[in-house]
């Protein structure tokens, strides 16, 4: 190969390399600017239908995992789930990135739980969370047909409605807000002795 040919091929290779570098889009930003100058990471955005922790060991059912970036989309659907502690049906979770905002949601139906001798049932639970580059974070949840040992409990819709039942504590519409995101749990149950922690319909955006 002559020196001229070598230089010509090198130039062509350089041009091709630069063209590829310019043409291939970089991954969408994982950071979304929040109102007030804060930032949130899209990659913490996820949803889980049920998370059960017993003695420090956690099992998650119908969980999306985290978004890879702000233009990712993930979903998880499970027919039903049952175990020693209870059962649920139609478990659903999604996490969606729309570029400058991310959203997640989780839901399930026919919930039956037995924790520390207390039976908790619900027709349906749903939670959603949103982190937007201009509007900030928001979220809400609902639990329908909630009953404890057959007695109906009414959700007020207010954030962090706490019901202490002695052996267990229920938190409805549990909202945890940080500078970079939000987590909304439709129902969070913990046992007094600290051995059991169950989160039903959890949605996180940002974080």
């Amino acid at each position: 190969m002559s020196k001229t040919e070598y230089l010509r091929l090198s130039t062509i290779a350089l041009v091709i390399g630069l063209t590829v570098l310019v043409a291939v889009p970089s991954p969408a930003s994982a950071q979304l600017s929040l109102l007030g100058g804060g930032t949130t990471s899209s990659t913490g955005t996820s949803a889980t239908a049920v998370a059960v922790t017993v003695l420090g060991s956690t099992t998650m059912l119908a969980s999306t995992g985290n978004l890879a970036n702000a233009t990712d989309a993930l979903g998880a659907e499970l027919d039903s789930a049952s175990g020693d502690m209870g059962s649920a049906a139609v478990l659903h979770a999604t996490a969606i990135g729309s570029g400058d905002s991310v959203a997640s949601e989780a839901s399930l139906g026919d919930l039956v739980l037995s924790i520390a001798g207390t039976q908790i049932t619900a027709t349906s639970a749903y939670a959603t969370a949103l982190a937007d580059s201009t509007a900030g974070t928001s979220g809400w949840s609902s639990v329908d047909g909630l009953a404890v040992n057959g007695t109906s409990l009414v959700s007020t819709g207010e954030a962090n409605q706490t019901i202490n039942l002695g052996a267990i504590t229920l938190v409805l519409n549990e909202v945890t807000q940080t500078a970079s995101g939000i987590t909304v749990n439709a129902l969070h149950i913990t046992s007094l002795d600290g051995t059991v922690d169950v989160v039903v319909a959890s949605a996180t955006a940002g974080q």
Partner: peptide
Amino acid sequence: GGGNIQLHR
């Protein structure tokens, strides 16, 4: 009764 449907961009 409960739940939600969300259309996303």
